[in-house]
Structure formats: structure tokens, C-alpha cells
């Protein structure tokens, strides 16, 4: 159990803030009263309610994203003490053991910052769309049960289906680089979204999407579209960009076997490329 007697009354938090997209970022120090069982979310809640820096300067609350606080929604990803993780499971006691001086919060660096710790991760969902990560069914009408699936298959697929699109694997990936576009003054929202999508499509999809391809290509019905999915992985920005640094699997909060998925996708695309070439 955390020994509360040795804990300080207060601790300091350094936040890398940014007022808007493309604005310059700056560090801000906050002082938060120590309470037992705190996580970074509760720290940010205290900061929001104080709205005051360590020097007593009145500031706007730090913006951040969160939702479930149980590490199943993927919203609260940020870089805490230099390492990407979910803010909800980043416990203050452990962070203080890691780095005594203060807690350091930064937004993810691979996605455009919207404000402070809030980033725009639409590119991830575009990746899922590009990978056709779904089961194509004839109808949602009552057609009886789905295919029988063995326990082994379920046990292989379940871990992959836990991916919550948090983006940790992408933040830690040296091959995944930031794409930030600016909407033109006369550009409509739809036109901008379209331009974004086509840019995203040419850039690396990342481990999360590759793993989803393997999830669906392992499903008895979804594998009908297996070749289309593999083709998407062989298109620009596909699996070939992977540099095998294997950071993805090390930082994944759900411990998804991402590198196994990547290697399996490597094998599948090898076969696909050869059969495609020789017909």
C-alpha cells in the first residue's frame, strides 16, 4: 500500500499548453494538493477548478479529453512524464516514484493539437475506414446465428478486438509522423475533410489498423473481403512503412499483440503480392 505519511502536501504539475492549432506552445506550472488515490484525471480536474498557476496567475482551465476513466474508451491518451499512456491509469503515487520533482503533461505529438492536451485523432478512424474494418453482412434482419467459432479462434481474436483507438501505438511509433493540414479560408468543411482523408490515406496507417485487418481477416465471414483489406495494407502508407521498432506493443495499454498482427499481415501480404503477380 502507498505509504501516505511520506507524501507531500502539494505537488507540482507542468503542462505543455497550446491555445489553438498551430499556435506556439508554452509550459505552465500548477500546484495541486495531494490526495490519496489520485490519477492524472483527478489532477486535471483540480487544475480546472483552480484555474490558477503556481504563481497565482489566473488562467483558463487546461483542456483535455477523457470519458470512461476505466481505460476502455481510449479518450484520455497523453504524454505523461515523457511516455504516452492513458491519463486515467496514470496514478500520481507511481508517477512520483518515477520522477520525484513534478508531473509533466504533454499532448500527443503525432496528432494536431486542438488545444492544450486535446488532439485531433480523426486520422485513426480514417485508417479503419480505409482498412474496411467491418463485417459485410447482407442484412440486419433476422438470419439466424452467426458462424460457429472455436474457442481457440475466439481467444486469438478477442485481444485484437479490444483495441480502443487510443493512439498510444502511433505516438510511440518512430515511423508514424504527424500530418497537420490547415483549412483554407474559402474551403468548406466537407472539402477540407476530403483533403485530409486523401492525405491521411498516403501516410502510414499504423499498428492499430494493421491489427484490425488481421482481426477481420480471421473472421469466417469478414474474410470474404480479406484481399481488399490486404490491398489496402499494400497501398501507400501500408504495412511496408513499419520499421519493426516494436514500440507499439510495448506501450499498448491493452497489451494487444500488435507485432504478431504486423508479422501475420506481413506474411499475408507476401502471399497476396505473389498470387497477384502470378495471377
Amino acid at each position: 500500500m502507498a505509504d501516505t505519511s511520506s507524501k507531500p502536501d502539494h505537488f507540482e504539475v507542468r503542462v505543455l499548453r497550446q491555445d489553438g492549432p498551430q499556435a506556439s506552445s508554452y509550459w505552465e506550472r500548477h500546484r495541486v494538493r495531494y490526495e490519496p488515490d489520485m490519477n492524472v484525471i483527478s489532477v486535471l480536474q483540480r487544475i480546472a477548478s483552480q484555474s490558477q498557476t503556481v504563481d497565482g496567475k489566473e488562467v483558463s482551465p487546461v483542456a483535455w479529453e477523457c470519458n470512461c476513466l476505466e481505460e476502455v474508451c481510449g479518450a484520455c491518451t497523453m504524454v505523461v512524464n515523457g511516455r504516452v499512456r492513458q491519463a486515467c491509469t496514470a496514478l500520481v503515487d507511481r508517477l512520483m516514484a518515477e520522477q520525484e520533482s513534478d508531473i509533466e503533461l504533454q499532448p500527443m505529438s503525432k496528432f494536431p493539437v486542438q488545444r492544450d492536451l486535446v488532439v485531433e485523432r480523426r486520422r485513426m478512424f480514417r485508417g479503419l475506414e480505409k482498412s474496411k474494418a467491418w463485417v459485410t453482412v447482407d442484412t440486419y434482419g433476422p438470419m439466424g446465428a452467426g458462424p460457429r467459432i472455436s474457442q481457440t479462434e475466439q481467444e486469438n481474436n478477442y485481444p485484437l478486438s479490444q483495441c480502443m483507438s487510443c493512439g498510444c501505438c502511433l505516438e510511440a511509433c518512430p515511423q508514424y509522423t504527424k500530418v497537420e493540414l490547415v483549412q483554407g479560408d474559402s474551403e468548406s468543411d466537407d472539402a477540407f475533410a476530403e483533403r485530409q482523408d486523401s492525405t491521411f490515406d498516403g501516410e502510414f496507417v499504423g499498428a492499430h489498423a494493421i491489427s484490425q485487418v488481421m482481426l477481420f481477416n480471421g473472421h469466417p465471414i469478414a474474410k470474404n473481403d480479406a484481399n481488399e483489406r490486404l490491398d489496402s495494407l499494400m497501398a501507400p502508407g501500408g504495412i511496408q512503412v513499419c520499421g519493426n521498432a516494436q514500440n507499439c506493443v510495448a506501450v499498448c495499454p491493452k497489451e494487444i499483440p500488435l507485432t504478431t498482427s504486423i508479422a501475420r499481415a506481413g506474411r499475408a501480404t507476401t502471399v497476396r503480392a505473389i498470387t497477384k503477380f502470378f495471377g
Binding site: V135, Y140, R148, S161, I221
Partner: peptide, 22 residues
């Protein structure tokens, strides 16, 4: 029962029995 069937068809990774049923 029809809703479970549909969810099953859509790919939910439900736990399975040894025989492969839900």
C-alpha cells in the same frame, strides 16, 4: 435471441463453448 444472433453475425468476439456455440 435475434439481437444476439445479429451481434454474433456482425463479429462480436463472444466467448465460446468447446463446440463453438456462444
Amino acid at each position: 435471441p435475434r439481437i444476439i444472433d445479429l451481434m454474433d453475425r456482425l463479429g462480436v468476439t463472444f466467448n465460446r463453448t468447446t463446440e463453438g456455440f456462444l
